[in-house]
Design a protein around this nucleic acid. Structure first.
Lengths: 199, 199, 199, 199
DNA sequence: TATGAATGAGCGTTCATTCAT
DNA sequence: GATGAATGAACGCTCATTCAT
């Protein structure tokens, strides 16, 4: 997060981030060169990107941060409105996430591209999860609390969280399917997978 | 599959494919240049790669084919030994798949890298699923048959297959966790998610 | 030399010159970009450098001028105090010069960097000796006068002056050696090299 | 030194090294880009330079090695023919070195450019003296032996060697002066500077 | 006097691929 | 079946400088 940046600079940065999201989503991370991003942003030179971002990693980090902020805003409203137990929270989490995918497919595709494809020279992830946010850890914590509250059966919260995230992200690669129906399927699936077993 | 290739040429191809798998697994698809693959294979010039493979897509396709063949061989033995119903088949599928990950982590990481990162210039996947194999479709078919046989509850087989595959692939990115315990968790999860609901 | 510049502007210029000296001395002329100099000066934009100096050549000229002024001030005091003949003058010249190196190593390293490395696009020296000062010519004149006064043997004053300067500058690249001992060695060396041969 | 390189590759490398020497000598190290060197070498792309040399440092090292080899060959013949004492050896060293400058001015200018201007990003010399050769150390050793043999007076051999090298290198920057006359001046200078003092 | 924003040219380097034996 | 040599395009990034307040 930058501080003390002027309005004009902030707007330019946002414009470049938007172009980067679209380029990465459409062509893949490996094809998203500064030249292609600049072209899509309608700016004449890649120099302007280097001027506003330290390097490519900095731009990529800005993309992830922007997507996460948007997702958090979109989903946060729905999640804070939940009044029921954590089972309902999980259902809302899945549904709002899939709705966000339907709303902003490019943003989420760009994020997934970065998460799976952006590496440093030595193979390490360019953006480490803990650098930006870590939805999976928060999900695992929620499961753990639900177990302690007796709302969920006993299972490994880490595995369950990883599976829920993987299931949701997989949905993002199926834009052909209806997000509400898909959400209903996943909700049914994970409700059964997590609820206390019948006595 | 090539025909009429000599033993020597086949061995060279296999050597290059092996080096490609290791390079992709370790450094990521984006860093797996011909130069790096050639270096790992212990050959002096990238020319040898171009000689044995039409182009990079051809090499990548060979990698995927090799990994799939190995996985099919490894898992096939276990799956054919299953005597119970499709619920047991699913459990064996999950478990043998995670065992394969533990056995050949580089192979599966290379495959996942290719699946998520390898694109043509215009953003299309470099290797289309139907070009090599399509485990997800076969899984969906299995679910459909199980539903018709009354072994599973009613759910969307496509969504369930996608979720199972995503859950298994997510496990591959967690080499820190014990594969048997992970398999047990996933088996419990999907057994509950797919079984007929209690009356 | 600028005229009519305000105190504030003069201070800024001095601040930038100081940063330039340190940067050139530490990283070499080729690595002393406006960006690096600005960073060391603690100013946010290179624009301030361009504002206070016409171009890079102007800044470099200001650096050389500043170093020469400092050296002339430092050495001038000692040289004016010499009462003996030109042989003693030469010894004092050498010694005070090496003392100055010890006092202001960054300044002299920066100057030598500029003298040896700063070129225009077509290879010409960025700062021509006669543009700023020309110690070598003054030294040659001193030798010529000394020969006419019978204090030195006959030799080519130009070659001798070039050699003395080269010897002194070489000393600047050996900050590991004691400057006084080095000066004593050079004094002994050039005293023998310049004195009248025994009859 | 490369081994097992083909005749064609060796010729190419030599061609590029020659072009590099001329470019560096004429335009200075800072202006000697791959593009300018390639143009002078008459090759179409800078890629060919990168193909034959690991990186710029590798090319620069090859230049220095080539110049040193040439100088050693040129001077070696004359030095091995010396029959007198070390005083005569020193005179021959100076004279043959200046003759080499007159013979191959571009080579020596290129070397001096590299020695004074070629740095890594952090300011360290791109080519360390000990990496290629170290004439100064050998000269110092010669002085030390001469002192032990009673041929020279007592002085610091390191300082004297540094001064002789600096004096010779300074001569290289004066192509306007006659090398034989210059050599005679330096020989007279250092003969007097090094010989035993009269009793 | 100062500043952020923007620029086009150039940098060394790497890319997969083709040429010519 | 194998090889070294060569290629043009593209890469991210840095350069000193200018524009516009």
């Amino acid at each position: 997060m930058r501080v003390n940046e002027s309005v004009a600079a902030g707007a330019r940065r946002a414009q470049i981030v938007t172009a980067a999201i679209e380029t990465i989503a459409e062509l893949g991370y490996g094809n998203a060169s500064f030249a292609r991003i600049a072209k899509r942003a309608g700016i004449s030179s890649t120099r302007l990107i280097s001027y506003h971002f330290d390097d490519k990693a900095d731009l990529v980090r800005a993309v992830v941060t922007a997507v996460f902020a948007e997702a958090a805003d979109f989903m946060g409203k729905r999640l804070r409105a939940v009044t029921g137990d954590r089972s309902e929270l999980l259902a809302t989490y899945i549904e709002s996430n899939l709705e966000f995918f339907a709303e902003r497919p490019a943003a989420i595709r760009a994020y997934l591209e970065i998460a799976t494809s952006a590496r440093t020279d030595d193979g390490a992830p360019l953006v480490r999860p803990e650098e930006v946010d870590d939805p999976e850890s928060r999900l695992a914590a929620m499961f753990r609390e639900g177990q302690e509250a007796g709302e969920f059966r006993q299972f490994d919260p880490v595995v369950m969280a990883a599976t829920v995230r993987a299931a949701i992200d997989a949905a993002a690669t199926r834009p052909d399917l209806d997000p509400h129906a898909y959400a209903a399927e996943l909700t049914a699936l994970f409700t059964r997978a997590t609820r206390r077993d019948p006595a």
